[in-house]
């Protein structure tokens, strides 16, 4: 069992847990993930390692409430325990001195891009971060991402805070201005797809962190297979980072939708049991 040391609510449906897992903390690197299972009946779900503290022996995860599992997790509080917490899994993000790196993040992924931006900065890069939200109320960690970036751009879809529009617009301008050596984009699949489409004409390598459905997270089931450069890869062992210009996005999105019907059924069953 893994104790939740602290919980923070970053916005209405995005939550942070600091979880006691000293051995995972010792080996964690930016870009890796853990597999979490909340209870005996629970599903195994992958969540990116958003931060870690070797002294405290803790690993931070940040998750968004979408379906049954993430909503069940959202019912837990500091002091409660997670059944399983496996990691660090996947390959770490490639960190090197590239020159200028643009880090783009949307939604829950703001938290997960912080350690990457920090490592990129420590490696001697100029880091420009772009964070996107639907609306002002959902904005979080502007200060934290700002503190590890040389420049920070915030967008909201409805224009209620800072710049109005999508993250792809400032990204495009930066690429047009020139001097960008690498783009990292993490967030909803659709956002990563459009960031990749935006950078493609400029020929600037764009790393995305793919989020297919997973079961074991160790290369044993093949559920997480994605098509990259026309080759089937297992995102849990070969990724989750891949070159966004080579990803078959439509396939990924189709596979993510596999269980829509079951997910709805599961959520209804859970809601019924909670209200009973």
């Amino acid at each position: 069992m893994y104790q939740i040391l602290a919980r923070e609510d970053l916005s209405k449906d995005i939550h942070l847990f600091r979880v006691k897992a000293p051995e995972v903390a010792r080996k964690a690197r930016p870009g890796q993930f853990v597999i979490v299972r909340g209870s005996e009946e629970g599903e195994r779900i992958p969540l990116t390692i958003a931060d870690w503290d070797t002294e405290e022996g803790s690993v931070t995860i940040v998750f968004m409430e979408v379906g049954t599992t993430s909503r069940k997790l959202a019912c837990l509080k500091a002091g409660d325990h997670l059944m399983n917490f496996v990691g660090p899994l996947g390959q770490p993000t490639e960190i090197e001195k590239f020159g200028t790196v643009v880090c783009v993040a949307g939604g829950f992924a703001i938290a997960t891009i912080v350690p990457i931006a920090r490592a990129m900065k420590e490696a001697g890069n100029k880091v420009i971060s772009i964070m996107g939200f639907r609306t002002k109320d959902l904005v979080f960690w502007e200060d934290r991402l700002g503190s590890v970036s040389d420049e920070l751009i915030v967008t909201t879809d409805d224009g209620s805070y800072q710049r109005k529009g999508m993250v792809t617009e400032p990204l495009k301008e930066l690429l047009q201005d020139g001097g960008v050596n690498r783009v990292i984009a993490i967030g909803p699949t659709i956002m990563m797809k459009f960031c990749s489409l935006t950078s493609r004409p400029f020929g600037i390598k764009t790393i995305v962190s793919l989020n297919p459905i997973m079961v074991d997270g160790t290369g044993m089931c093949g559920c997480c297979r994605v098509l990259v450069n026309n080759e089937t890869r297992f995102a849990c062992v070969d990724g989750p980072d891949f070159n966004g210009h080579e990803v078959d996005w439509d396939l990924l999105m189709n596979r993510q939708r596999t269980y829509l019907k079951e997910e709805k059924e599961s959520l209804e069953c859970w809601k019924k049991s909670v209200s009973a």
Binding site: E41, G42, E43, T69, V215, E265, S266, C269, W270
Partner: peptide
């Protein structure tokens, strides 16, 4: 392993 035959009592479909 995930007991999907007991879905939706178990969460894995």
């Amino acid at each position: 392993l995930m007991k999907a035959y007991l879905f939706p009592q178990y969460d894995t479909p």
